[in-house]
Design a protein around this nucleic acid. Structure first.
Lengths: 154, 154
DNA sequence: TCCTTATTGATAATAATTATCATTTTCATT
DNA sequence: AATGAAAATGATAATTATTATCAATAAGGA
């Protein structure tokens, strides 16, 4: 166990959840890598290196829990395994979206954002929330296509 | 077999692919339901009703093929099974995005804000294409949150 | 009609995720 | 610090979506 994210801990206590070693290890891994999108297996391997007792099922359970709490975001890029990353609601997490290559599966993050883009997103979210009585927590934006490498070969 | 989508057929011939009954049935199903997002199983069941000889593996193969050709779009809403729908590039397919309830899995389509959104999206796509030398074919936009029903109960 | 080859369907195999359950931890209370 | 109820865990089996295999079939040019 390394570092406790006080914000997350407070939320867990408030919801009657227990602060366990396994959970802290997983949250620490995700907190330290806000710009990465890890698969459950990758997280398991990293957690296992820190605390070899941790089991695979618990990793899945913890990831589900954190996603349910809105702390992490589950995303799928089409290769059959889900990825997880910190929500933008968390501190130090840059707003970013993904370019997904449908050929090789490569995922590029981009963080450039015009103010115009941000404004429109906020506006759309607000209007959708009202119209559909839908409490929007976050969004997923992916641009799918062919990356530079695959484009050369193809 | 019902109806042949001439545009799709032309593309298939051009790429040396064969116009088979199974493929036509599946394309027909998708073409007739441009606003739906079917799972592979749902498509299999519908195809099976039209032509009981069709096998599950072929449904998957055909969906992969069509996705590769950019005719349909594979998306995942987080419930473990992929969904497929016509690309906006196809005729009669309205520009739309999704609201996904992380509680019950319900998916709402919305079509509002199209003009402004489309414009900005086109601009962003152009800029990203150039910057990352990435040939963008389509995009996935999902707003995740809690739907009206789940909000009441929760 | 014939012939080559892409495509198919049935089935088995794979791989990610989830359910089960006895055991261990957490943490409020003493 | 010790206690005890309940939540959480780890090992494992079970489930489920998807993919690979392969002999049989059908598409389409000759």
């Amino acid at each position: 166990m390394r570092h406790k994210n006080p914000w997350v801990c407070r939320r867990m206590v408030k919801e009657g959840l227990r602060i366990t070693q396994t959970r802290m290890v997983i949250i620490d891994i995700l907190t330290r890598n806000p710009e990465k999108h890890f698969s459950a297996e990758e997280i398991f391997l990293m957690a296992h290196r820190i605390n070899p007792g941790i089991g695979f099922a618990t990793v899945y359970r913890t990831l589900d829990l954190l996603a349910q709490m809105g702390i992490i975001q589950k995303m799928e890029f089409g290769d059959g395994k889900a990825r997880y990353e910190m929500t933008e609601a968390m501190e130090n997490v840059p707003h970013h979206h993904h370019l997904v290559c449908t050929e090789c599966g490569k995922v590029i993050d981009y963080t450039e954002f015009t103010d115009e883009e941000k404004e429109l997103l906020a506006k759309v979210e607000k209007e959708l929330s009202e119209k559909y009585k839908f409490k929007i927590k976050n969004h997923i934006i992916q641009f799918c296509g062919i990356c530079n490498n695959c484009g050369k070969r193809g």
